[in-house]
Write a protein that binds this DNA or RNA. Structure first.
Lengths: 239, 239
DNA sequence: ATGTTTCTGTGTCGACCGGCACAGAATTAT
DNA sequence: ATAATTCTGTGCCGGTCGACACAGAAACAT
């Protein structure tokens, strides 16, 4: 198995796993070569010889993350008999995984490169592609549920998958902000309780008792907004 | 109004707005002093004289962001007569704001410092505090709705606010990944259609036809997971 | 034993980072 | 006019970034 020359003095898989943890915690740009080499226990020339570059190492780390952390999700989506159980399994699993002790909080694919400099745009796009692949996998599972009669024939499966993907990605931010597994479970409770109304057709509007006219706020100007309001300074805030 | 010495040759508010846009687009760490000075049209000594440091400038930019982009949200939350209309107004507003042309996509407070090096942890915590303040403002609005009889007395307002906060934060990620305003609106449709089931009491479990036993997937190991599964490489993916 | 190959550690490269010293320019106060 | 004050632009600081040259060490083949 060993090649011709001097054998490698470190375990490549172990070093890659260490690198994944650092990237997972700090993100791509915020992780320096010094962070990597000290975590992996090797010098930078060994890193370059084994992985090529910092970016190539990151891509390998993402692939490893998907293989180890994401594999059970793909399995649940394809093997569980009902789409509802499959989506709930994904949400419950993530609620625990994002808050598990011994590993960084939140999802690496969501959090590791949300913002970066133009020079590293390829890295950001790489993760975005992976995120979209996950949403698409969910949409295909919902399509199957429509074919099997589990969901109404006119279900907007793309929008439904986008909704649950949005919830999952928001959960990553919540976990990074200190939400507990129980906190995320309460959000999952609500997302799953809404299953029937979320499975609405493409043409429908809010449904239920929600045939509202419009947001009703003063359309002062088409300016932008942020996630939630706070006129004054944040102060302490415990929740 | 002018002081004693040589007057400032640039407009401080304009320069701050430019800085906000750069931080909004690239995030805190990925934005260099060169990025800032070129966008603001001033040299670095002027920046330091006017704002103190890169971090102080960022905090001022966040405050400006909240005052300009977030103020309508706080207004909707406090002034609209029903909590349901208020929350929907916030969601609809954000769906448009996150995807508006002429400004960066997504929410600055969610995206500008999700991951950063330990040295910049104070910046990350600063934004996290702001995010939590928004969630708390929503929770207080829901408390008022309970007091006014709009929501059941046993409503878990904290969990309900956390749910909608999670959706909003997920929408920021979606917008960054290229989702359109119509895409986000479809998610808002579903989040609002679920209003009644989301307003569930603290003790309740999934409700509806969702009294499931457990996720039911093979509990292979307590490892973590990511946002969505993808066994193979991402490939192209258009949605 | 000798050559070939491959990995390891030291040291360092040019570029850029955030931040600031310094001198000159522009204003007000006297 | 002259002094005092404040801003502006040039240039540079020490430190760190990602990346690699180089020589020595450790395995193989012959």
């Amino acid at each position: 198995m060993a090649g011709r020359g001097r054998p490698r003095a470190f375990d490549r898989d172990t070093a890659l796993r260490r690198a994944m943890e650092v990237f997972w915690t700090q993100g791509y740009e915020a992780t320096s070569m010094t962070d990597l080499t000290s975590a992996m226990g090797i010098a930078s020339p060994s890193l370059y010889a084994a992985f090529g570059s910092k970016e190539a190492l990151f891509r390998e780390a993402v692939t490893l993350y998907d293989a180890t952390e994401g594999a059970p999700m793909a399995q649940a989506l394809t093997e569980l008999p009902s789409a509802r159980d499959a989506v709930e399994a994904v949400l419950r699993w993530n609620a625990r995984a994002y808050t598990a002790e011994g590993s960084p909080s939140g999802c690496m694919i969501v959090l590791a490169a949300t913002n970066c400099s133009p020079a590293n745009a390829p890295v950001r796009d790489h993760l975005a592609t992976w995120r979209k692949a996950g949403a698409r996998l969910t949409a295909r599972r919902l399509d199957r549920a429509v074919q099997e009669g589990e969901l109404p024939a006119d279900t907007d499966t793309e929008a439904m998958a986008a909704f649950y993907t949005t919830v999952i990605q928001g959960m990553s931010v919540q976990a990074r902000d200190g939400a507990t597994g129980a906190d995320l479970d309460r959000t999952v409770d609500r997302a799953m309780a809404a299953w029937e109304v979320v499975a609405m057709p493409a043409t429908a509007r809010p449904t239920a008792a929600a045939a509202r006219p419009e947001p009703a706020d003063d359309r002062s100007k088409p300016a932008d907004d942020r996630s939630a309001p706070a006129t004054t300074r944040p102060a302490s805030s415990t929740a």
